[in-house]
Amino acid sequence: MRIKQIASLLFSLIIITLTLFTNTIHAKELPINTRLGGHFKLPGTLNRPVALNEYEGKVLLLNFGYTTCPDICPMVLSRLSQTLKRLKEDSDQVQVLFISFDHERDTIHKLQQYLAHFNSNIIGFTGTKAELKTVAKQYGAIFAKQQTSVESDVLYAHSDYIYLLDQKNRIRKLYASDHNIDEIVADVRSLLKGQPWWKKLAEMALAE
């Protein structure tokens, strides 16, 4: 009986110590953004509706844009492609997602051709105006048509953040379109390393 009590006390002490240690190092980890993000399911370049949670278990890099974009979007996609190259074999555990908000001009076929130029593994999405508006709102993405005399020359003013999502589809960081690639690679690697065993144990014990 006494041994059981001592064992229980020891276990509790270990859990408390680990929890305190966990909280101390938590500050160094990428915080979870609880304000933005969320699930979506949109027509994708896999020729079927694709849901975000199909990529649970992978680290995601997400960006909003449009294929007629001459400057920012090709730059972001080139940089994301470079990021994947820099990650080498780790890139298998990373997925780049590109959501086009130009529902009038960007078809799935067009997106497939466009994205293949940067990296054949990038998944593209589009949708109806309402669907895209909902997803953009979830992620705080903004886009607005800029006035032009010629319809084919329509350009969008838009936010150009790159969103880093963890293996549970939670936003962990937002980057500016020209953010340092070294830092993105390091952040992706930190998420891929995952939690140490003792932290998982501590979280499980606390959950119980």
């Binding site: 294929t67 007629t68 974009c69 001459p70 090709p74 051709q113 466009y114 130029h117 940067f118």
Partner: peptide, 12 residues
């Protein structure tokens, strides 16, 4: 000059 995908109409 950016070598954009062949489906692109504009470049920079």
């Amino acid at each position: 000059i950016r070598k954009v995908p062949t489906i692109s109409t504009h470049t920079a």
